[in-house]
Amino acid sequence: MQLSPPLTDSDSEPAVPAWSAVGAMTMCVALLIAAEFMPVSLLTPIARDLRATPGMAGQAIAVSGLFAVATSLLIPAASRRFDRRQVLIALTWAMLASLVLIAMAPSFAVLMLARALLGITIGGFWALSTATVMRLVPSEMVPKALGLMYTGNAVAAALAAPMGSYFGAIIGWRATFWTLVPLVLANLLWQAASLPSMPPDTKTSPVSVLGLLKRRHVALAMAGAMLSFGGAFTSYTYFRPFLETYTQVSVPQMSMLLLGLGLAGFAGTYGATMLLGRHLYALLRWLPLALGLVTLLLLGLGHHLWGVALALVAWGALNAAIPVAWSTWLTRGVRDAPESGGGLMVAAIQLSIMSGAALGGLLLDHLSITATLMGGAALLAMACLLVGNGRSLQAQER
């Protein structure tokens, strides 16, 4: 069943928005984020059951990021000849297969294979998501549609780890992953019913993912995005040791603080969506600076629980607004090649997340948690300086 009319090459921007299709993509995003980050709270039982060390189990999380980077760079070219509707549905089937493999994994090797398959879905879906949204709604509604999609991201980011921990203690880690399977099946049915046919655009010349870097404004934008995301994850990855050693919270208090941080993402996503139409470049400039200042504020308020709680709420809201802003930039900065631009952006974000986490760990091991948060703030300040007034990120008339 297909409720929405097909999009042809000459009708790449629909007159009527396909909000049901955007909703299906939002649900898929939430499930992807949940599947990616749920193991964070289940590392110990997974390691014990599969006879692996906690460090080895942690690598199962990292491997999905590595495959996401590779897929995001390759999928725009690999999928160019296929209907985007079929590609997105196929990627969702891959997510389903990965969840079943994780839940049934008899060994650590099978778990790694399943996580690699999940990484392919993450990289492919995110790389094509912005270009797909541009074909589902009229251009003036794209920021609103992207904001809706990132609401799914905020929901999963806020709830995946605490729900994983809760259900893992009650029904076990394997059954916890099984609970996602019927949700993915429901999402597949929703996608089949709502996603319109989106044939390949044969009227425009393909642009390679890495070839986009030859455009000065794209290269600068990728640098700005990497500094923004890298700075955020230099700090975010190590909030737990900060809260344990600096604020000295209990485990229940930490759970509530991190949940508050995640829930604040709803406000950040909504606020960014409302402002993007007229203030995109201002947001790209000032969001990372504000996030850096709040990161430093955490250090100043670090010994006061309620001060830290308020700062974490602000941090979560600002952090959630950044990906919405950069996704909207894609619709303007690389409008002629949104799929290749999406692949490049996903690769840049995944690489910056891994690099930021590595930098934060080095600063923590060799200096202190204070150095880690200051390092993250410094990268965020550099992002603000690089973006400037935004003129260097705007595509020149071609």
Rank of each mutant, 00 (worst) to 15 (best):
F37N: 11
F37T: 11
T44G: 12
P45F: 11
P45D: 12
D49A: 07
G55Q: 06
G55E: 12
M56K: 10
A57D: 05
A57W: 05
G58H: 05
Q59R: 11
I61G: 02
G65E: 09
L66K: 02
A68M: 09
I75L: 15
P76R: 00
R80F: 05
R81L: 09
F82W: 14
F82K: 04
Q86G: 10
V87G: 06
L88P: 01
L91E: 00
A103I: 00
A105L: 04
P106Q: 04
F108M: 14
F108G: 05
V110F: 02
L111M: 14
L113A: 14
L118H: 03
T121W: 06
F125I: 08
A131L: 01
V133R: 02
R135S: 11
E140L: 10
M141G: 05
V142P: 01
V142W: 08
Y150E: 12
G152V: 04
G152M: 09
N153I: 12
A154D: 07
A154G: 10
A157S: 15
A158Y: 04
A158W: 03
P162V: 00
M163K: 02
G164P: 10
G164Y: 08
Y166K: 13
F167G: 08
F167H: 09
G168V: 00
I170S: 13
I171A: 14
I171Q: 14
